[in-house]
Design a protein around this nucleic acid. Structure first.
Lengths: 146, 146
DNA sequence: CCAATTTGGTTGCAAGATGCAACTGGTACC
DNA sequence: GGTACCAGTTGCATCTTGCAACCAAATTGG
């Protein structure tokens, strides 16, 4: 049967999964952050089948994560670049990376601050006063009760 | 054809996708954070087919995200609870939630600090000295160069 | 200029994944 | 004993994925 659409789900997590709920889409976005822009660049670096890539790129464009821009050299080909919305996925990508590194041996890459080349602090939650919070210290409440 | 295995991929993002690269797995983890523990609880709240749920729960257990514990009341049924590794997905889940809320109308829920009921700061990167960093301010470098 | 290659796809399968419904085997309740 | 619930399993139809082959336009090489 058809995979259920999550677009109208009330939960924002579920809605997000419409865009990043499949493996190739996430990897495409990862490559986009790495500077890849063209069809063949994604194809080569990911080893994904062309037909799948075609469909995924179109979906990401339709969802506003990527956008097609006319080629820079004035050529006939276009390129795929992250939109503002797409760039917002950086935190998500890095959260996933952080988790994958935490439980899979020692890290091979570090995220550093461009300015001073020093490592960035791991993603974590902070209370309004700056205290760091763990998963158990927080609660998700309807805005009406906030 | 068979979906490619990502377990041995060098990229931690790709490896993580082995666990959370599919929609149901993410939603199951979300429900687990919401306190769901039993097969039928996941089934009812997600509306997922039993056979799919069976396979997903087994995969999450195999990957060390969930673990089966003997039922609390001494009954014959077991329950599925998040492991330490699984609880590490909280940041990922909330990053996804944050992204989904950011671009889909107004938020319906807020994450608040249990202690003072005040909203938690959105997830963001911080330099070693506490400055907030955007995606463009950071770079991923091999540890050898760090 | 003509041929070969690259780019960005489309099309046609075969096999795997997903979803529904029906069924099973155990416990729990009355 | 009969009914209901829980946690699955099994079968079948449909959807998705992946490979390979093909294609047209543009670019490159000689």
């Amino acid at each position: 049967m058809k995979r259920r659409s999550l677009e109208k789900d009330t939960c924002p997590v579920a809605r997000s999964l419409e865009a990043i709920g499949d493996t190739w889409s996430v990897l495409i976005v990862r490559e986009a952050f790495a500077g890849k822009r063209r069809f063949c660049e994604f194809e080569k670096s990911l080893g994904v089948a062309k037909n799948i890539l075609t469909v995924r790129l179109r979906k990401l464009v339709a969802l506003g994560v990527l956008e097609q821009v006319p080629a820079p050299g004035g050529g006939v080909h276009h390129e795929y670049v992250l939109t503002e919305k797409g760039r917002g996925l950086y935190v998500v990508l890095m959260a996933i990376r952080q988790w994958g590194e935490g439980c899979g041996g020692e890290a091979k890459y570090v995220l550093v601050d461009r300015r001073d080349r020093r490592p960035v602090k791991p993603l974590a939650f902070h209370a309004h006063d700056g205290r760091e919070l763990g998963a158990g210290d927080m609660e998700l409440v309807p805005v009406s009760e906030a």
